[in-house]
């Protein structure tokens, strides 16, 4: 009952020393530039909140925001549907199949998304394998797949899928399969055991995976710009165009801040209900 007063402080100070380089790094290379962007959004070219009014009210911008959210929702949904069975097999069946699958997911994850985007350009191209296959089956001329919402959704799904798989895998690994056996011994069918026991236990993985994938997706830049439809822009692509074509740093900064606020809001909601520390399983 008489702990010395200095002991609890020791680890704190040590933690602070250990964290110091990271903190300095984050302040200098993240917080300061971020503050500058915030500042630019209300001072460039003159002081005021006009950019925000425009970004939020202009029908063109609103459409881009809605398109971005729509595409991200679609990508997240498809990711859940594809990743869930994959993560299930990897986590519960394991063995060689599980190891191979996990490696394939990791390999895909480690390949640069730029490379993967270009790969999709070839696969979905006019003279690519998919087109040739469709032609062989009598669909001639085959549909143009590149530069559509379809192509950007497919590529984004592929790029973000590993993250969803890992989020699900992390949660599924912790599920005690004896509970399933217990359910079976009490007369539950495999389906009912899955629905009532396994699925609810794995749900946190779906929520955290979806949050990460959705947040990454709304900010994605390269892939939609390279292979998306010219008619469906994403927010990041538009921020790029604002700077590249119009040198409109103020407006672009305001858009970036809106994107940041949306991201933080999503994470805040997640934190409120689940706790951010659970995001990575």
């Amino acid at each position: 009952m008489t702990p010395t007063k200095s002991t609890p402080h020791r680890p704190d100070r040590l933690a602070l020393i250990l964290l110091a380089p990271l903190l300095v790094f984050l302040v200098v290379f993240f917080l300061v530039p971020l503050g500058e962007v915030m500042w630019m959004s209300i001072t460039e070219p003159s002081f005021g909140f006009g950019h925000y009014g425009k970004v939020l009210l202009d029908p063109h911008y609103r459409r881009v925001v809605l398109d971005t959210l729509g595409t991200s929702l679609m990508v997240t949904t498809v990711c859940v549907l594809l990743a869930y069975p994959l993560a299930y097999v990897t986590a519960q069946i394991g063995g060689t199949i599980g190891a191979v699958l996990l490696m394939l997911v990791a390999m895909s994850f480690w390949t640069s998304f730029l490379v993967r985007t270009y790969a999709w350009m070839i696969i979905l191209g006019n003279r690519g394998p998919v087109s040739e296959l469709l032609k062989a089956t009598g669909w001639d001329p085959p549909p143009l797949m590149l530069f559509t919402r379809f192509s950007s959704t497919v590529a984004l799904t592929h790029i973000l899928l590993p993250i969803m798989v890992m989020a699900l895998y992390a949660v599924m690994r912790k599920i005690d399969l004896n509970i399933m056996k217990a359910a079976a011994s009490l007369g539950a069918t495999p389906f009912s055991a899955f629905r009532n026991i396994y699925f609810p236990l794995s749900a946190p993985g779906i929520v955290s995976g979806s949050t990460i994938v959705f947040v990454l997706c709304i900010g994605f830049y390269v892939t939609p710009v390279l292979i998306g439809s010219p008619r469906e822009q994403m927010i990041s692509g538009m921020i790029g165009a604002q700077i590249e074509e119009f040198l409109a740093f103020g407006e672009a900064s305001a858009m970036a801040m809106v994107l940041l606020v949306v991201t933080v809001a999503i994470l805040a909601v997640y934190h409120r209900f689940f706790g951010l520390d659970k995001l990575w399983g």
């Binding site: 191209g125 006019n126 003279r127 590149l146 530069f147 010219p230």
Partner: peptide
């Protein structure tokens, strides 16, 4: 009729070369 608007020189070549 315009499938895509090019932004970079190499991209314009690739689009015609690959028959996009």
């Amino acid at each position: 009729s315009i499938r895509v608007w090019w932004t970079q020189g190499p991209q314009s070549q690739q689009l015609l070369r690959d028959g996009e």
